[in-house]
Computed example of a mutant assay.
Amino acid sequence: MAKVQQSTHPAYDAVARTLHWLTVLLIAMQFVIGWTMPDIHKGTQPVGLIAWHLGVGSTLIAVMVIRVVWRLTHWPTPDELPPLLSVVSRITHFLLYAALVAVPLLGWINASSRGWTVRLLGLVPYPALSETGSDFGHEMGDVHGVLAWVLFALIALHVAAALFHRFVLKDHVLQRMLPHAGPSNDSPRNQ
């Protein structure tokens, strides 16, 4: 039986990889649901695809909280990138994390302004982040829609960069986030 060859390049740990791919799945679901659900108007009820959008969004919020805490407490092994690529990578990752937190948060604020209860897994209610009928909450719904497109563009840039690393630079940056990518060298930040 052939032995699977391990990469000598350090990978992200299993928790970071799992959270990354779970985020990918949830975001893909959100974009499909968001593009296919009916428009939301005054008096629209959170049923059907709108309920699904709220449910997946509430799960995304929970995953992102865990992901941010994990990232803040575990340093990934630095990539061996040229200085300019390293700076671009850090900026892009920061913007991705910011958008991945802001977009569902703004959706939650908007849902609260409509009097909708956002529930994790349909069970655990999240607190309202704006009063029912709040003009601010309704405006955040518009910002939510615009930032979703910004998030989409950042994701496209992230995917393009991963493919650039794999097929042009032929380095191991992409493989670090794939299963069986090699030994993890992530370390807790407090060590």
Rank of each mutant, 00 (worst) to 15 (best):
M1H: 12
K3W: 11
V4C: 02
S7I: 02
Y12K: 09
Y12F: 14
A14E: 06
V15P: 04
A16N: 08
R17T: 01
T18I: 07
H20C: 00
T23K: 08
T23V: 07
A28S: 14
M29T: 14
G34D: 04
D39K: 06
I40G: 00
I40W: 00
H41N: 06
H41T: 07
G43W: 09
T44V: 04
P46A: 10
V47M: 15
G48P: 02
L49G: 12
I50W: 07
V56N: 10
I61C: 03
A62Q: 05
V63N: 11
I66A: 07
V69E: 04
R71Y: 06
L72K: 12
P76E: 05
P76H: 13
E80D: 09
P83K: 13
P83T: 03
L84I: 10
S86M: 01
V88T: 05
I91S: 07
H93K: 05
L96T: 06
L96E: 09
Y97D: 08
A102D: 13
A102E: 12
A102L: 15
G107Q: 09
N110A: 13
A111R: 09
G115E: 02
G115Q: 05
W116E: 08
V118Y: 13
R119D: 03
G122K: 12
V124C: 05
P125N: 15
P125T: 14
A128Q: 08
G133Q: 14
F136K: 11
F136W: 13
V143L: 15
L147R: 08
A148D: 03
W149S: 03
V150Q: 14
A153Q: 15
A153E: 12
L154P: 07
I155D: 00
L157R: 03
H158L: 12
A161W: 09
R166M: 04
L169D: 14
D171L: 01
H172S: 09
L174V: 01
R176I: 01
M177D: 03
P179G: 00
H180E: 01
A181S: 08
N185H: 12
S187G: 10
P188S: 07
P188T: 04
Q191T: 01
